[in-house]
Protein backbone atom coordinates (compact mmCIF):
# COMPACT_ATOMS: atom_id res chain seq x y z
CA UNK A 1 0.00 0.00 0.00
CA UNK A 2 2.90 2.28 0.67
CA UNK A 3 4.76 0.92 -2.31
CA UNK A 4 5.44 4.32 -3.86
CA UNK A 5 6.93 5.62 -0.64
CA UNK A 6 9.09 2.55 -0.29
CA UNK A 7 10.22 2.92 -3.88
CA UNK A 8 11.27 6.49 -3.16
CA UNK A 9 13.25 5.41 -0.16
CA UNK A 10 14.96 2.72 -2.19
CA UNK A 11 15.81 5.27 -4.82
CA UNK A 12 17.30 7.61 -2.22
CA UNK A 13 19.32 4.81 -0.73
CA UNK A 14 20.56 4.00 -4.19
CA UNK A 15 22.44 7.27 -4.35
CA UNK A 16 24.59 6.24 -1.43
CA UNK A 17 25.95 3.38 -3.44
CA UNK A 18 27.82 5.65 -5.79
CA UNK A 19 30.45 6.65 -3.33
CA UNK A 20 33.94 7.58 -4.31
CA UNK A 21 36.28 4.66 -3.99
CA UNK A 22 40.04 4.89 -3.94
CA UNK A 23 41.44 7.69 -6.05
CA UNK A 24 41.90 6.59 -9.59
CA UNK A 25 45.43 7.61 -10.49
CA UNK A 26 48.56 6.00 -9.19
CA UNK A 27 51.06 8.75 -8.44
CA UNK A 28 54.62 8.14 -9.50
CA UNK A 29 56.17 9.88 -6.49
CA UNK A 30 54.29 7.43 -4.25
CA UNK A 31 56.59 4.70 -5.48
CA UNK A 32 59.37 6.22 -3.40
CA UNK A 33 57.56 7.62 -0.39
CA UNK A 34 55.11 4.78 0.13
CA UNK A 35 56.62 1.72 -1.42
CA UNK A 36 60.39 1.66 -1.47
CA UNK A 37 61.32 3.51 1.71
CA UNK A 38 58.65 1.82 3.81
CA UNK A 39 60.48 -1.42 3.16
CA UNK A 40 64.15 -1.27 4.20
CA UNK A 41 65.31 -4.22 2.11
CA UNK A 42 63.59 -2.74 -0.92
CA UNK A 43 65.32 0.56 -0.23
CA UNK A 44 68.80 -0.94 0.11
CA UNK A 45 68.33 -3.36 -2.77
CA UNK A 46 66.96 -0.79 -5.15
CA UNK A 47 69.72 1.72 -4.36
CA UNK A 48 72.38 -0.93 -4.96
CA UNK A 49 70.76 -2.08 -8.19
CA UNK A 50 70.42 1.50 -9.31
CA UNK A 51 74.13 2.09 -8.75
CA UNK A 52 75.02 -1.13 -10.56
CA UNK A 53 72.89 -0.14 -13.53
CA UNK A 54 74.57 3.26 -13.65
CA UNK A 55 77.95 1.54 -13.56
CA UNK A 56 76.88 -0.84 -16.32
CA UNK A 57 75.94 2.12 -18.48
CA UNK A 58 78.75 4.59 -17.81
CA UNK A 59 81.32 2.16 -16.38
CA UNK A 60 83.38 1.63 -19.51
CA UNK A 61 83.66 5.38 -20.14
CA UNK A 62 84.81 6.25 -16.60
CA UNK A 63 87.25 3.36 -16.39
CA UNK A 64 90.79 4.77 -15.98
CA UNK A 65 92.35 2.20 -18.33
CA UNK A 66 91.39 0.10 -21.30
CA UNK A 67 90.16 -3.24 -20.01
CA UNK A 68 92.32 -5.19 -22.44
CA UNK A 69 95.42 -3.00 -22.56
CA UNK A 70 98.49 -5.02 -21.62
CA UNK A 71 101.26 -3.38 -19.65
CA UNK A 72 103.99 -5.85 -18.86
CA UNK A 73 105.93 -3.35 -16.77
CA UNK A 74 103.11 -3.09 -14.23
CA UNK A 75 102.35 -6.79 -13.59
CA UNK A 76 100.95 -7.92 -10.24
CA UNK A 77 100.80 -4.45 -8.75
CA UNK A 78 98.97 -4.43 -5.46
CA UNK A 79 96.11 -1.94 -5.00
CA UNK A 80 97.40 1.62 -5.03
CA UNK A 81 96.14 5.05 -6.11
CA UNK A 82 97.23 4.26 -9.64
CA UNK A 83 95.44 0.95 -9.80
CA UNK A 84 92.95 0.86 -6.96
CA UNK A 85 92.12 -2.83 -7.46
CA UNK A 86 95.66 -3.71 -8.52
CA UNK A 87 96.78 -5.26 -11.79
CA UNK A 88 96.84 -8.83 -13.06
CA UNK A 89 99.49 -11.09 -14.57
CA UNK A 90 99.44 -9.11 -17.82
CA UNK A 91 99.45 -5.72 -16.14
CA UNK A 92 95.79 -5.03 -16.91
CA UNK A 93 93.92 -2.75 -14.48
CA UNK A 94 91.49 -4.91 -12.45
CA UNK A 95 89.28 -1.93 -11.57
CA UNK A 96 88.74 -1.15 -15.25
CA UNK A 97 88.10 -4.79 -16.02
CA UNK A 98 85.54 -5.12 -13.20
CA UNK A 99 83.82 -1.94 -14.40
CA UNK A 100 83.62 -3.28 -17.95
CA UNK A 101 82.47 -6.59 -16.54
CA UNK A 102 79.39 -4.97 -14.97
CA UNK A 103 77.95 -4.39 -18.40
CA UNK A 104 78.81 -7.92 -19.57
CA UNK A 105 77.27 -9.38 -16.44
CA UNK A 106 74.06 -7.39 -16.82
CA UNK A 107 73.83 -8.38 -20.45
CA UNK A 108 74.17 -12.07 -19.61
CA UNK A 109 71.81 -11.85 -16.65
CA UNK A 110 69.06 -9.98 -18.49
CA UNK A 111 69.25 -12.05 -21.66
CA UNK A 112 69.26 -15.40 -19.90
CA UNK A 113 66.42 -14.39 -17.57
CA UNK A 114 64.58 -13.25 -20.70
CA UNK A 115 65.02 -16.62 -22.37
CA UNK A 116 64.12 -18.58 -19.24
CA UNK A 117 61.12 -16.41 -18.45
CA UNK A 118 59.74 -16.41 -22.00
CA UNK A 119 59.83 -20.17 -22.46
CA UNK A 120 59.01 -20.96 -18.85
CA UNK A 121 56.02 -18.64 -18.95
CA UNK A 122 54.70 -20.21 -22.14
CA UNK A 123 55.15 -23.78 -20.89
CA UNK A 124 53.62 -23.03 -17.49
CA UNK A 125 50.76 -21.08 -19.04
CA UNK A 126 49.79 -23.73 -21.56
CA UNK A 127 50.21 -26.54 -19.04
CA UNK A 128 48.17 -24.77 -16.38
CA UNK A 129 45.46 -23.62 -18.74
CA UNK A 130 44.93 -26.75 -20.76
CA UNK A 131 44.30 -29.46 -18.14
CA UNK A 132 44.63 -32.89 -19.66
CA UNK A 133 47.24 -34.41 -21.92
CA UNK A 134 49.18 -31.26 -22.76
CA UNK A 135 49.42 -30.43 -19.08
CA UNK A 136 50.92 -33.82 -18.30
CA UNK A 137 53.35 -33.82 -21.19
CA UNK A 138 54.65 -30.33 -20.45
CA UNK A 139 54.95 -30.67 -16.71
CA UNK A 140 56.61 -34.11 -16.91
CA UNK A 141 59.13 -32.50 -19.24
CA UNK A 142 59.74 -29.86 -16.58
CA UNK A 143 60.07 -32.61 -13.99
CA UNK A 144 62.80 -34.20 -16.09
CA UNK A 145 64.63 -30.88 -16.25
CA UNK A 146 64.31 -30.67 -12.49
CA UNK A 147 66.11 -33.95 -12.03
CA UNK A 148 69.47 -32.44 -13.04
CA UNK A 149 71.38 -29.65 -11.33
CA UNK A 150 70.95 -26.42 -13.30
CA UNK A 151 74.68 -25.94 -13.69
CA UNK A 152 75.00 -29.44 -15.15
CA UNK A 153 72.34 -28.74 -17.78
CA UNK A 154 74.04 -25.47 -18.66
CA UNK A 155 77.42 -27.19 -18.89
CA UNK A 156 76.06 -29.90 -21.13
CA UNK A 157 74.51 -27.28 -23.40
CA UNK A 158 77.69 -25.22 -23.61
CA UNK A 159 79.67 -28.37 -24.31
CA UNK A 160 77.25 -29.08 -27.12
CA UNK A 161 77.04 -25.54 -28.52
CA UNK A 162 80.64 -24.51 -27.91
CA UNK A 163 81.82 -21.89 -25.42
CA UNK A 164 80.99 -18.27 -26.24
CA UNK A 165 79.09 -15.43 -24.62
CA UNK A 166 76.02 -16.03 -26.78
CA UNK A 167 75.96 -19.74 -26.04
CA UNK A 168 76.47 -19.07 -22.35
CA UNK A 169 73.36 -16.90 -22.35
CA UNK A 170 71.37 -19.59 -24.15
CA UNK A 171 72.60 -22.32 -21.82
CA UNK A 172 71.94 -20.42 -18.60
CA UNK A 173 68.57 -19.34 -19.97
CA UNK A 174 67.48 -22.86 -20.88
CA UNK A 175 68.69 -24.23 -17.57
CA UNK A 176 66.38 -21.79 -15.78
CA UNK A 177 63.24 -22.49 -17.82
CA UNK A 178 62.05 -25.13 -15.37
CA UNK A 179 62.10 -22.64 -12.55
CA UNK A 180 59.81 -20.14 -14.29
CA UNK A 181 57.58 -22.87 -15.72
CA UNK A 182 56.83 -24.30 -12.28
CA UNK A 183 56.01 -20.94 -10.76
CA UNK A 184 53.82 -19.91 -13.69
CA UNK A 185 52.05 -23.26 -13.65
CA UNK A 186 51.28 -22.95 -9.96
CA UNK A 187 49.89 -19.44 -10.27
CA UNK A 188 47.87 -20.29 -13.38
CA UNK A 189 46.27 -23.24 -11.60
CA UNK A 190 45.03 -20.84 -8.95
CA UNK A 191 43.83 -18.18 -11.38
CA UNK A 192 42.32 -20.74 -13.73
CA UNK A 193 39.32 -21.35 -11.49
CA UNK A 194 38.41 -17.72 -10.96
CA UNK A 195 35.08 -16.64 -12.42
CA UNK A 196 36.55 -13.81 -14.49
CA UNK A 197 37.93 -16.39 -16.90
CA UNK A 198 34.52 -17.98 -17.28
CA UNK A 199 33.12 -14.51 -17.75
CA UNK A 200 35.67 -13.89 -20.51
CA UNK A 201 34.79 -17.19 -22.11
CA UNK A 202 31.12 -16.30 -21.96
CA UNK A 203 31.60 -13.12 -23.92
CA UNK A 204 33.31 -15.23 -26.53
CA UNK A 205 37.04 -15.03 -25.76
CA UNK A 206 38.98 -17.97 -27.18
CA UNK A 207 41.66 -19.93 -25.35
CA UNK A 208 44.57 -17.78 -26.58
CA UNK A 209 42.79 -14.58 -25.74
CA UNK A 210 41.96 -15.86 -22.27
CA UNK A 211 45.56 -16.85 -21.69
CA UNK A 212 47.35 -13.81 -23.02
CA UNK A 213 44.86 -11.07 -22.32
CA UNK A 214 43.31 -12.18 -19.07
CA UNK A 215 45.68 -14.60 -17.36
CA UNK A 216 49.09 -13.07 -17.98
CA UNK A 217 48.43 -9.71 -16.29
CA UNK A 218 47.20 -11.61 -13.26
CA UNK A 219 50.25 -13.81 -12.92
CA UNK A 220 52.85 -11.09 -13.43
CA UNK A 221 53.48 -10.08 -9.79
CA UNK A 222 54.90 -13.41 -8.56
CA UNK A 223 56.86 -13.74 -11.79
CA UNK A 224 58.54 -10.38 -11.27
CA UNK A 225 59.76 -11.60 -7.90
CA UNK A 226 60.97 -14.90 -9.32
CA UNK A 227 62.70 -13.16 -12.22
CA UNK A 228 64.51 -10.78 -9.86
CA UNK A 229 65.79 -13.62 -7.75
CA UNK A 230 66.45 -15.58 -10.93
CA UNK A 231 68.65 -12.76 -12.19
CA UNK A 232 70.96 -13.27 -9.23
CA UNK A 233 71.01 -16.99 -9.94
CA UNK A 234 71.79 -16.41 -13.61
CA UNK A 235 74.69 -14.09 -12.78
CA UNK A 236 76.06 -16.71 -10.43
CA UNK A 237 75.64 -19.54 -12.94
CA UNK A 238 77.23 -17.49 -15.71
CA UNK A 239 80.19 -16.60 -13.49
CA UNK A 240 80.52 -20.25 -12.50
CA UNK A 241 80.55 -21.41 -16.10
CA UNK A 242 83.03 -18.71 -17.11
CA UNK A 243 85.19 -19.69 -14.18
CA UNK A 244 85.20 -23.24 -15.54
CA UNK A 245 86.17 -21.90 -18.95
CA UNK A 246 82.81 -22.83 -20.46
CA UNK A 247 81.38 -19.38 -20.73
CA UNK A 248 82.72 -16.04 -21.77
CA UNK A 249 86.08 -16.44 -23.51
CA UNK A 250 89.16 -14.34 -22.74
CA UNK A 251 89.96 -11.55 -23.06
CA UNK A 252 86.36 -10.34 -22.50
CA UNK A 253 86.22 -8.89 -18.97
CA UNK A 254 83.62 -11.04 -17.24
CA UNK A 255 83.74 -11.34 -13.44
CA UNK A 256 83.80 -15.12 -13.37
CA UNK A 257 86.51 -15.17 -15.98
CA UNK A 258 88.67 -12.57 -14.18
CA UNK A 259 88.30 -14.71 -11.07
CA UNK A 260 89.25 -17.81 -12.98
CA UNK A 261 92.32 -16.37 -14.65
CA UNK A 262 93.55 -15.08 -11.32
CA UNK A 263 93.25 -18.36 -9.46
CA UNK A 264 96.82 -19.45 -10.24
CA UNK A 265 98.18 -16.37 -8.44
CA UNK A 266 95.99 -16.58 -5.35
CA UNK A 267 98.98 -16.45 -2.98
CA UNK A 268 100.99 -13.88 -4.83
CA UNK A 269 98.19 -11.52 -5.81
CA UNK A 270 94.97 -12.18 -3.85
CA UNK A 271 93.40 -8.94 -5.17
CA UNK A 272 92.98 -10.72 -8.49
CA UNK A 273 90.27 -12.83 -6.83
CA UNK A 274 88.99 -10.57 -4.07
CA UNK A 275 87.66 -7.73 -6.24
CA UNK A 276 85.83 -9.65 -8.98
CA UNK A 277 84.55 -11.97 -6.24
CA UNK A 278 83.24 -8.99 -4.29
CA UNK A 279 81.61 -7.62 -7.44
CA UNK A 280 79.74 -10.89 -7.99
CA UNK A 281 78.71 -10.96 -4.36
CA UNK A 282 77.44 -7.38 -4.38
CA UNK A 283 75.44 -7.90 -7.58
CA UNK A 284 73.88 -11.16 -6.40
CA UNK A 285 73.21 -9.80 -2.94
CA UNK A 286 71.53 -6.65 -4.15
CA UNK A 287 69.22 -8.57 -6.46
CA UNK A 288 68.40 -11.03 -3.72
CA UNK A 289 67.61 -8.27 -1.23
CA UNK A 290 65.57 -6.41 -3.81
CA UNK A 291 63.72 -9.61 -4.75
CA UNK A 292 62.89 -10.32 -1.12
CA UNK A 293 61.58 -6.83 -0.65
CA UNK A 294 59.55 -7.15 -3.82
CA UNK A 295 58.09 -10.41 -2.59
CA UNK A 296 56.95 -8.79 0.63
CA UNK A 297 55.46 -5.97 -1.37
CA UNK A 298 53.61 -8.06 -3.91
CA UNK A 299 52.34 -10.56 -1.38
CA UNK A 300 48.57 -10.42 -1.80
CA UNK A 301 48.04 -10.27 1.94
CA UNK A 302 50.12 -7.13 2.17
CA UNK A 303 48.87 -5.49 -0.96
CA UNK A 304 46.11 -3.55 0.71
CA UNK A 305 48.49 -1.52 2.80
CA UNK A 306 50.20 -0.03 -0.21
Amino acid sequence: MNKRKIDNIIEDLGQIEFDERASAKFKFKDIFSKVIFKNPSMAIGSIMIFLLIILAIIGPSIAPYDSQELNMSERFESPSWNHIFGTDNMGRDIFSRVLHGTRVTFKIGLASVGIGLAFGLLIGLFAGYSRGKLQNVLMRFIDILYSFPALLIAMALVAFLGPSTRNLIIAVGIASIRYYARVTYGVVLVERNKPYLDAAEIVGAGALRQMFRHLIPNIVPPLIVVATLGFAGAVLNAAGLSFLGLGVQPPTPEWGLILSSGRNYIIRAPWLLIFPGLAIMVAVLSFNIFGDGLRDLLDPKQQRKV
Binding site: A200, H214, N218
Partner: peptide, 16 residues
Protein backbone atom coordinates in the same frame (compact mmCIF):
# COMPACT_ATOMS: atom_id res chain seq x y z
CA UNK B 1 23.28 -15.65 -25.40
CA UNK B 2 24.99 -13.74 -22.63
CA UNK B 3 25.37 -14.59 -19.00
CA UNK B 4 25.98 -12.87 -15.71
CA UNK B 5 27.18 -14.55 -12.56
CA UNK B 6 26.40 -14.58 -8.92
CA UNK B 7 29.70 -13.10 -7.80
CA UNK B 8 30.25 -9.64 -9.26
CA UNK B 9 33.33 -9.37 -7.03
CA UNK B 10 35.29 -11.99 -8.91
CA UNK B 11 33.73 -12.10 -12.37
CA UNK B 12 35.60 -9.02 -13.49
CA UNK B 13 39.28 -9.33 -14.24
CA UNK B 14 40.99 -7.39 -11.44
CA UNK B 15 43.87 -6.11 -13.55
CA UNK B 16 42.04 -4.80 -16.60
Amino acid sequence: IAMIFQEPMTSLNPVL
